[in-house]
């Protein structure tokens, strides 16, 4: 009760400790699907980070004498139509979508968040004209537009990811704008104003960081998985994705067309499905947890 006994503050709560406690409580209470998905996401993250430090040589080692081998101790997942280890190519294939996906996700979440906050905060003609431009972008069919871009420019996964992140900015900005508009009428935001907090701090910290963090994370993960998806689709449709001989999960599926046996598509396809499902479940789990904390 007295000043002396409370003088020394106990634990300081910092941004990483709140993240940790969010994650930890999510881990304890979430269903099995969330636990599985977060394990897969962490694996993908670790593989993605160590990937650039590993040489391409064994992945590119073509040897037609050992083509289409079944799984063995030497080749865990067998070999493909050109005698290259499927396990190694799957592993190295993460590099194809990992950094482009990260860049696309971060870019879309950042620009979408800032634009949404501006639209919601300013309203008026600034907000209206920004929303009009964003809605115009939103009417573009994503897939068709990306195929169009790929036929015009030389294939580049970085270009694809940047374009797809731009295509996602409007939907993120709309979500954030609605949130900002709804929060503007909340008592506690009015109280912050009345206590003399700087409006920039209210909008960037109290609204964007505290309230929209989970939403933005989920959207970021969604864009990340979309890059993986679109790379697969474009590789299969017309070799617009990562080019042979460099491996990506998409062109591994595409390459299985020239294989003599029926099954090589299965492993990369399974990897794609599991990773996308895990990413989406992970994003939802985090977002749901933060929603619960608010109540």
């Amino acid at each position: 009760m007295t000043g002396q006994s409370t003088g020394q503050s106990t634990r300081q709560s910092t941004w990483y400790s709140t993240w940790y406690s969010t994650w930890h409580s999510a881990w304890k209470e979430q269903p099995l699907s969330f636990k599985l998905s977060s394990i897969i996401v962490v694996l993908v993250l670790c593989f993605g980070v160590i990937n650039p430090f590993i040489s391409y040589d064994p992945v590119l080692d073509v040897e037609l004498s050992r083509r289409d081998l079944a799984p063995s101790w030497e080749y865990w997942m067998g070999t493909d139509g050109q005698g290259r280890s499927v396990a190694l190519r799957l592993f190295k294939g993460i590099e194809a979508f990992f950094f482009p996906g990260l860049i696309a996700g971060l870019f879309a979440a950042f620009v979408g968040g800032v634009l949404g906050a501006l639209c919601g905060y300013f309203g008026g003609w600034i907000g209206r004209s920004l929303s009009a431009v964003l809605e115009l972008i939103d009417t573009l069919p994503r897939m068709v537009f990306l195929v169009l871009i790929c036929t015009i420019f030389p294939p580049s996964i970085l270009l694809i990811s940047i374009i797809s992140s731009v295509l996602f900015i409007p939907s993120i900005a709309t979500i954030i704008r609605r949130k900002v508009e709804a929060l503007g009428a909340e008592d506690y935001i009015l109280a912050h104003v009345a206590h003399g907090f700087h409006p920039l701090k209210i909008i960037s910290y109290h609204i964007l960081w505290l309230q929209c963090r989970a939403l933005l994370t989920r959207q970021m993960i969604f864009v990340f998985s979309y890059v993986l998806f679109i790379e697969t689709a474009l590789s299969y449709l017309g070799d617009y994705g990562v080019q042979e001989p460099y491996p990506s999960w998409g062109n591994m599926v595409a390459q299985s067309r020239i294989s003599a046996v029926a099954w090589p598509w299965a492993l990369p396809a399974l990897a794609i499905i599991i990773t996308i499902a895990a990413l989406l479940a992970f994003g939802d789990g985090i977002a749901r947890r933060e929603e619960e904390v608010k109540r």
Binding site: E186, D187, Y188, L190, A191, H192, V193, A194, H195, G196, F197, H206, L210, Q211, V293, K294, R295
Partner: peptide
């Protein structure tokens, strides 16, 4: 704001930042 005049509102739960 804050220095000369400030306010407390009706609903205490909704006037504190929930996060």
């Amino acid at each position: 704001w804050g220095r000369a005049i400030t306010s407390i509102f009706q609903n205490p739960r909704r006037s504190l930042d929930p996060l």
